[in-house]
Structures are given as C-alpha cells and as structure tokens.
Amino acid sequence: MSTRSLETEGLTKSFGGVHAVNGASVAFQDGKINALIGPNGSGKTTFFNCVTGMIRADSGRVSYRGDDVTGAAPHRIAAAGIGRSFQLCRVFPRMTVLDNMLVGVRPQGLLHRLRGGHNAGDIARARQLLGRVGIDHLERSEARDISYGQQKLLELAGVLMTDPETIMLDEPAGGVNPALIGRLGTLVRELNAEGRTFIIVEHNMEMVMSLSHHVVVFDRGAPIAEGDPATVQNDPRVLEAYLGV
C-alpha cells in the first residue's frame, strides 16, 4: 500500500448548535486527485479549515503521513507540506504579483529571513511558476488590478511556491470561465503527474468527475459515501443528499 496521506478521525466542529463537521473520519489517497463534494452547508469548507489549522476542531484527530497534526497552527501545517487555496480566492491585493509569490518562500533561520526578498534565486523560481500558470507578464502589477481568473491562477502559483506535497483547493472552478476551468484542470493533472496529491472541494460536477480518482461525499458534516467517480455518481445516498429527498 502507498504511504498514507491526510486522514481524520472523528473530527467535530460546532458553531453554536450547528454541527458543521460531525465526527468526520476520512482518509485521502496519497498521490491521487481526491475530490470532496457535497451539498451547500454540508461542512466541506469547515472541514478544510479544521484540517489546515485555520479553526480549531472541538474534538477528533487529524494526521498527515502518519504524524499527528491536530490543532497545529496553519504555518506548521504549511511546513508539513500541505498548501491550500481559499474559497472565493485570496491574494495580497496591494502587493505586486511577484511579491505575492515571494511570500511563499520558506526561509530557514534568522539569516535566511534577513536576506533580500528580491534575490535572483527566489525571483527565478517565482517567474518560472508564474510562467507555468501563464501570468508571468503581470509580475509588476498589483494583485488587486488583475482579473479574478488571473487572481485564481496567482493563488495557485503562490501555493506552488511553498512546494507542497499535498494541495487543497477550495472551489477552484467557482466564478471562472470555462476556458480557465479547462486550464486549471490541465494544471492539476500535470501537477498530480509530478507526484502531488490533490484534495479538491468543488461543485462543478463535470470537473470533479473528469478529474478525480477518488471522491468523498459529505452530508451534514460527515462522509456518506466514497469511491471512484462512477461508483459515487450512482450511489443512492448521494442522490438523496443532493436532491434532499
């Protein structure tokens, strides 16, 4: 069996009386494109935020590659090798595209941190990644001045700058045009072929079904079904959850 990727055990998070995540035990497959789907309000984003340390779970365990990372701060999760994007896309609006990229440089120790941010090595890597997503011509623009689609690409490139083994994307196809969805899909496939694991929250079923190897379906804060796309698609529990019967 391959090495273990991200796993949760009985993860629970409530807001007041709402059990956003309710005893979720999920195991994602290493080296694969995993999808996390479910109706609105089924707790996908809260689950994401608990896993990446943005919010603290009430109970349960999160482990990554066998290490317990429950309750670890977001920068520790990032250091462990998990990069993430945000729902509705978050970039640093008043920083240039290039500086947005340089935030992801991970310095080791004091001297590294005091080194000039605009050194040739960091810039070359940033430009290479910007070129890869196709926005290298914008490096001097402020991030707030580029289009929403370009910001999405910048966010992905920024995550890649941290060189994560696992990339969690929260609705990558939300609010972007079909051409760009295609481009994102190609990028995800290429990056996956290089050995990066993906965990994607997405509502665009076409994208999910064509892209992913493994699908986990959430409803009311816990997984109700999982398997390959074809199996999940025909699962009566999934249909029920989506149609609300």
């Binding site: 943005m54 945000f86 609006p93 920083m95 500086d99 935030v103």
Partner: peptide, 19 residues
C-alpha cells in the same frame, strides 16, 4: 524576506499563515 512576510500579514494575515 522577513519584510515580505510582514507585508503579507498586513494584506491578509490568515492567507499569509497558510503560506
């Protein structure tokens, strides 16, 4: 690099931490 991290905090602290 320290300064770039600080400016990222100014712009979006959670995002900076996630990176």
């Amino acid at each position: 690099r320290f300064g770039i991290g600080l400016k990222a905090i100014r712009e979006d602290e959670d995002k900076a931490q996630s990176l």
